[in-house]
């Protein structure tokens, strides 16, 4: 391989660095653990895993240096953020006692939008109906405790 054509894959290099960081965190965490009276203590396996991660960090760094990671196409960041935003909204609504049904309906609408639908209201309604059905089945039939909000209390 000639040095002129090879490019260092920076994102892949970051993965290698990330693995190294994880290994350091594991060793740091393990160092505070006590030893046991008999047999192998709780420290041994974490340190073994950290060792493996260090080797793999080197392996990945070599691959990144040689540019042997696969080509990555550009991607639709907006769609990814929309879905993650839907998930965040779900967590927030449940956390604020908004209840299971609206939270799930929001996630449904956000995901459908991320996949190119442009009818957020319709999708919200579909998601809403779906989660009402799911809620009724699980909460009433199976007495499973799902997060309660104002709407759930009405049902």
């Amino acid at each position: 391989m000639s040095t002129a054509t090879h490019r260092i894959d920076r994102a892949a290099m970051a993965i290698a660095a990330g693995l190294l960081v994880i290994a350091v965190v594991i060793v740091w965490d393990a160092s505070s653990l006590p030893s046991t009276v008999y047999g192998i203590g709780p420290r041994a396996v974490p340190i073994l895993v950290a060792g493996g991660l260090v080797l793999l960090a080197i392996g990945n760094a070599v691959l990144a240096w040689r540019g042997e990671f696969p080509e990555r196409e550009d991607y639709d960041l907006q769609a990814v953020l929309l879905i993650l935003g839907g998930l965040l909204a779900l967590i927030a609504i449940i956390g604020l006692n908004g209840g299971f049904i609206p939270a799930t309906a929001v996630l449904f609408a956000a995901t459908a939008t991320a996949f190119g639908r442009r009818a957020i209201l319709t999708d919200f309604v579909i998601g809403f109906v779906l989660s009402v059905l799911v809620f009724l089945m699980f909460s009433k039939l199976l007495t499973l405790s799902l997060p309660m909000g104002p709407i759930e209390r009405l049902l």
């Binding site: 839907g86 449940i94 799930t104 996630l107 449904f108 459908a112 991320a114 190119g116 799902l146 997060p147």
Partner: peptide
Amino acid sequence: PQPWLYAGILVFATMGTIAAKPSAVELT
């Protein structure tokens, strides 16, 4: 249609987690 299929999949995916371990940490 793909948008609804994946939206439905995500609803089911989170639903299982919410039902089994309803905490913000688990969902995060």
